[in-house]
Computed example of a mutant assay.
Amino acid sequence: MNTSRSSELTRGAVEEIRRWILNGEIEPGERLREVDVAARLGMSRTPVRQAFQLLSGEGLLDARPAGGFEVPRWSRQEIDEIYQLRALLESFAARRAAMRSEDVPIGELAELATEMTRLGAEDDPDLHLLGELNFQFHQLVFQSSGSPRLVAALTGVTHVPLMHRIFFMYTRSEMDKTLQEHHLLVDALNAGDPDWAANVQHAHILAARSVLMNRLARED
């Protein structure tokens, strides 16, 4: 098999397995075996093996000690810690980005914020797409900090499934509020105001944490 074809198969496997995880088709803690996933996708095990490694790097899969991979599962305490770390690190990233506002892609951030607001206003919003756009928005802010070390640290605590899951827990008013906060952050970055940007981002993450922890407490 040529390199181009192999890369295409791996990319296709990554996209499909990622969709299963984010859609909830694969439960947290569920084991994934190369042979089963390869059969489901109708391809050999090699691109699936490579896809597992790539998705592990994204934080969407964890390697099991006994072999294979599984979708991560977190305790309430771990989720609380993740969001508190995100609040600290993301507010610092926003502060740094505001300090170098001339390098921040304000237009792209504004477009993402506007598109999320448009989607959120629909009667039946596409929550998966909202999650994807939200992830893109936050990644742009991380990258705008100008610190590869900070981006690496954020990647370690920004768990994509949790970022997507929160949109399924928001009430309409909570969703409206969180989407409006994206616009406030864009305004703060555009103004080059580090304190404003840091405070908006800190409050934004802690508000999401409050929603998630309250929902988990009620589920218990």
Rank of each mutant, 00 (worst) to 15 (best):
Phe52Glu: 00
Val48Trp: 01
Ser144Arg: 00
Thr10Cys: 07
Val48Ser: 03
Phe167Gln: 03
Val211Thr: 07
Leu184Tyr: 11
Phe69Gln: 05
Gln143Ile: 06
Ala51Gly: 05
Ala94Trp: 00
Tyr170Val: 06
Ser144Ala: 15
Met43Ile: 10
Pro65Ile: 04
Met116Glu: 13
Pro161Tyr: 06
Glu122Trp: 03
His164Gln: 12
Glu122Arg: 10
Arg96Cys: 14
Gly12Phe: 11
Gly192Ala: 07
Val35Asp: 10
Arg73Tyr: 12
Pro161Glu: 09
Val48Gln: 01
Pro161Ile: 01
Phe142His: 15
Val157Cys: 01
Ser144Tyr: 00
Arg5Thr: 13
Val141Gly: 06
Glu16Met: 05
Arg86Cys: 07
His182Lys: 07
Thr178Met: 05
Asn214Pro: 02
Arg19Gln: 15
Lys177Pro: 00
Ala113Lys: 02
Val151Asp: 12
Leu60Tyr: 02
Glu34Thr: 11
Arg209Pro: 00
Asn190Ala: 12
Glu81Ile: 02
Glu181Phe: 03
Leu130Cys: 10
Trp196Phe: 15
Ala217Trp: 09
Phe69Asn: 09
Ala153Phe: 00
Asp126Gln: 12
Arg118Gly: 14
Asp36Arg: 06
Ser56Val: 08
Glu81Lys: 04
Arg18Asp: 08
Ile106Ala: 10
Arg33Met: 09
His159Val: 15
Asp195Asn: 09
Pro148Thr: 03
Arg45Ile: 14
Ser91Glu: 01
Glu78Ser: 04
Ile26Pro: 00
Pro47Tyr: 02
His183Trp: 05
Ala66Trp: 05
Gln143Lys: 15
Trp196His: 13
Leu89Pro: 04
Leu216Phe: 06
Ile82Gln: 08
Ser91Asn: 06
Phe135Thr: 15
